[in-house]
Amino acid sequence: MASQTKKLGRIADVFHDLETVERVRVSDLTQEIASLRAAQDDIFRSLESPSPVNGLFTALLSSRVGRLERRIQQLSREHEIALKRYAEAAARGRSADRLLAEAKGEEARKREQAELEALLEFQEAVGAQGRGKSPRPS
């Protein structure tokens, strides 16, 4: 039973590691999306205050905004998928934790039962020795 508990412990650890990987992926995507949105906002702010330099590069800035928007959309889809995978990994981790807790509980019950059986055998052995002795004269 102890080997089963060890195996379940290792499985639970793997699931927690996978959950961590997915959480990091979600975090990375969130940061990248925020960074792209900030770059896009910077471009919009620069276009709000017209200047001769901006006028020359308006087409390029417009193109850049379009590319940023497409990348944000792509990352948003990846982010959604990563969130689902993270939720699934978390659910698998919780299931593994429950199985591990059940296995540990079963192991503890079996150990307790074995200890009780050993105690009963000891009491029977002591009782049998006591019955075999002759009473002492008073």
Rank of each mutant, 00 (worst) to 15 (best):
A34W: 04
A118W: 05
R64N: 04
L99S: 13
D97S: 08
K110I: 08
L116F: 09
R45I: 03
G55W: 06
V24S: 10
E102R: 13
D28S: 09
A91Q: 08
L36I: 02
E22Y: 07
E102W: 01
L47Y: 00
A118D: 09
L61H: 03
I43M: 08
L36C: 06
D97L: 01
S62L: 01
Q123C: 04
Y86V: 03
L29W: 14
G93C: 07
E106L: 09
L36D: 04
K84N: 04
R67E: 06
E78M: 11
E106G: 06
L60P: 04
Q74Y: 11
E106R: 14
E69R: 13
A114E: 14
D28H: 12
L68E: 05
R37G: 05
A125P: 00
E124V: 03
E69I: 05
S51H: 06
I72L: 08
G55N: 12
A103S: 12
Q74G: 07
S27G: 14
F122D: 12
L47K: 01
E121V: 05
V65T: 13
A91G: 01
A59C: 00
A108G: 10
L83Q: 11
A91T: 01
E78N: 13
S51A: 05
F122E: 15
K84S: 07
S63L: 05
R25N: 15
A103I: 09
R70Y: 13
E106M: 10
R71Q: 12
S35H: 10
A114S: 14
L56N: 05
R111P: 07
E32I: 04
E124H: 12
K84H: 05
R25M: 02
K104I: 13
E48D: 10
Q123I: 05
E112R: 15
G66Y: 07
A39V: 00
V26W: 03
L99I: 02
P50G: 00
A82K: 00
D97A: 04
L120V: 13
L29N: 11
V53M: 11
E80Y: 01
A125K: 15
V26H: 11
E69Q: 14
R23P: 00
T30G: 13
E124G: 00
S35F: 08
L99N: 10
